[in-house]
Design a protein around this nucleic acid. Structure first.
Lengths: 244, 244
DNA sequence: ACCCCGAATATTGTGTACAAACTCGGCACC
DNA sequence: GGTGCCGAGTTTGTACACAATATTCGGGGT
């Protein structure tokens, strides 16, 4: 049975990897709006009108509404009165989010150290090698997009090794930040890719050793090492209120 | 001093104060389903049929749908295939959630120590006194419901003192757990109310002293002191993988 | 007897119509 | 000339109708 009803305006931006080839409106609306926010097409503070988003994503208002609810829940959009707006991330807030991630994913690494499987450890090792291959050939940058993908996969693997739905849900929320901000602050320095991967190796070692304390602390340090620095700050102190 | 500070997550057990007596269907659906889950009326693993919930809450499927999305986002419901089910909280997961809360709210206390206002400090002091009055007159228990409300208000005040929407959103999610489980594990021992309030006083002192390190650690300890213990465990070790 | 296939049923997904609430602008009245 | 009220337009909220899909049960075939 072939669905002859291939969506009329199917081209759009959607290059989804849906297994069936079709993509349900709800997903298209959600991923479409989300990507628009994360990529900066929809800027912080922009009004999220349902009608306009429905046109933009090629669906109707119903899927858009549900997408908006989810986005509000994830912190990418905010309710304000009756309508919704793209969440804004002032620098202070981004800094807080990184400190939260340091603690959250640190604890995740602790849990993972107890529960991770050999297969998952292998996968982490594979990802580390892939990242190495990225930074190996041509000097450093230009592949930031690829690095981001592999890096996300690495962290996602650790997260899923916790076997905790709450942990995964909370981390997902804490990780959802417009890339603009990250790129702007962190990934401007190309050296970070190699350092980051060295830390990945340490994390893998800690997990393989089943050393929860080590895993928590190295993961926490890993994330703090990527914490953005306020543009106008040259070197030390200032917003370094973090430690334990 | 109740008017100004209406924290977003103050709805815990709180009864909504419908101004006109009218309540919008969306709210009724959301709070209705949420309370049903938290109170145990809808048990873990129960199927959340939209039609049935619409009848139960006296609305139509549309508000129910949006409520379900939000609940999934909060971790109280889970998607499974096409439909939704009440989230289950095995003991291991509850333990993890408390460890997460210890870190999350601990960091919240650190932030609050930097940003809290005198008015908020006063409010905290007032709440502590109210809790004292609860446990003062008649021995201990029976007022667990009142304690829960004041305790929630205390923590919500600290959270809102962080001025961080993400922190508040994440904590709200980490705090949403069916009360059944908490009561069953933690509040069975009546002594905890007094000890808990002594810790509240310490937290207040740390905040008033603007000592972020102290605040983080005492808050973390406070939450860990209420962490459930596996029913079959008598005394020490076992699931005590937590520390830093 | 068992397996596979198909229809009937139940449940969710989507679109749309309509209602309610808010906004903004103009006009009248003070 | 300023202020307040009222109405048109816009946007969100709610309900319902219909479509699509999963599920279950029954029948027929091997």
């Amino acid at each position: 049975m072939m669905p002859d009803d291939l969506s009329p305006l199917a081209e759009g931006l959607g290059e989804s990897l849906s297994l069936d080839g079709i993509e349900r409106p709800a997903d298209r609306a959600y991923t479409g709006i989300r990507r628009a926010i994360l990529s900066g097409i929809l800027k912080g503070g922009a009004h999220l009108g349902e009608e306009a988003l429905a046109r933009m994503t090629g669906t109707s208002r119903t899927p858009v509404r549900e997408a908006l609810r989810r986005l509000v829940g994830e912190g990418l959009a905010r309710d304000e009165g009756r309508s919704r707006f793209v969440a804004e991330f002032p620098f202070e807030e981004v800094a807080v989010i990184f400190d939260i991630r340091a603690r959250l994913e640190g604890y995740a690494a602790r849990l993972a150290a107890e529960r991770i499987t050999a297969a998952e450890l292998d996968r982490l090792a594979g990802l580390i090698e892939e990242i190495d291959r990225l930074s190996g050939p041509d000097g450093t940058s230009t592949r930031i997009q690829d690095f981001a993908k592999l890096n996300t996969a690495f962290h996602a693997t650790v997260l899923s090794a916790t076997r905790s739905p709450q942990m995964q849900s909370l981390s997902a929320q804490a990780t959802a930040i417009p890339l603009e901000l990250i790129k702007q602050f962190v990934w401007s320095q190309p050296v970070n890719v190699e350092r980051s991967n060295r830390q990945h190796r340490d994390i893998l070692d800690a997990l393989a050793a089943r050393n929860g304390n080590w895993a928590e602390n190295i993961m926490s340090a890993h994330i703090l090492s990527t914490k953005p620095v306020r543009p106008g700050a040259n070197t030390t102190q200032d917003t370094q209120e973090t430690s334990t």
